[in-house]
Design a protein around this nucleic acid. Structure first.
Lengths: 146, 146
DNA sequence: TTCGTATTGAAATTAACATTCAATTTCAAT
DNA sequence: ATTGAAATTGAATGTTAATTTCAATACGAA
């Protein structure tokens, strides 16, 4: 396991909030970090179960919320209606393939800037945003063309 | 009632698809068109009920789907998780106030263009997108500041 | 008017998330 | 090491909004 930084980060958060350090939380953090990309709590649950067969879904669910609060994870919900978690990082937006489910991240300063201009125009104070492009990835576009 | 164009449009769609022209469908279309903005099927249901007390929620729900298929309405789901319907029109995006629920529409050719460039970069074929800015509207920002 | 099909609407089901609560675990103070 | 208050766990249950079922009813072509 090479997630020392994150483990430490979690421990610190737990201490600061008078929460307890449990093996379940460690196991779930590890499983989450090992998985790459945008993973659902169901998926994390089954990964965790490989090593820890009696960790319940509820605990995974609650721990993922905890990791979000601790700043280690962040929650995303695309149009399929299922919540996914990704490792917390710089802000970015997503391309979502409607055929294979592939998720590509992108960022664009230009768009961010334009957003602020629009918000100003309406005297609107933006707290967060969601910008998702849905369609077909390269591979799927080819398949569909056939 | 001044929704002749839309009534006609619906009738045409129904005929073309061997569907039936019912008073419920007419009533629901009328209620939907009279309401302004982004309305939920619950809300449409209670509007319709004012005049037609025994139209059920299910019918409203199904009819809104139908109106979407017919190109008269379109469906939106913001982060509150409730589906809303708006009158079908030119593409646009939204500012959503997290405090009072106000929804402001905007469009921006600049952003649309930049989107296409990003998609190209990833060889991605965009079919639709979602771009929502969440925050506080003018009035709510003031309230919050107090 | 009749008849086959579509529609209706109450009720049941689904899907995903969220909460409850009794049993268990943690950890600071003995 | 033991204790005990407080936090955590996890199975079961609740919630919310969307969706489907199905028996009864309405539409509209013949």
């Amino acid at each position: 396991m090479s997630h020392e930084v994150e483990q430490r980060s979690l421990s610190q958060y737990l201490e600061e909030h008078n929460l307890k350090h449990t093996k379940q939380r460690e196991a779930i953090l590890a499983a989450f970090l090992e998985a790459t990309g945008h993973i659902t709590s169901e998926e994390i649950h089954s990964c965790v179960r490989a090593d820890h067969p009696n960790i319940g879904y509820t605990t995974v669910y609650r721990t993922m919320k905890l990791l979000c609060d601790a700043g280690l994870a962040s929650e995303r919900r695309f149009d399929d209606g299922v919540t996914r978690y990704e490792i917390e990082q710089e802000h970015h937006d997503h391309l979502v393939c409607l055929r294979c489910g592939k998720i590509i991240e992108f960022e664009c300063a230009m768009i961010e800037k334009t957003q602020m201009e629009i918000a100003d125009r309406y005297q609107f104070r933006v707290l967060r945003h969601r910008h998702e492009l849905y369609g077909h990835c390269d591979a799927c576009a080819e398949e569909v063309a056939k």
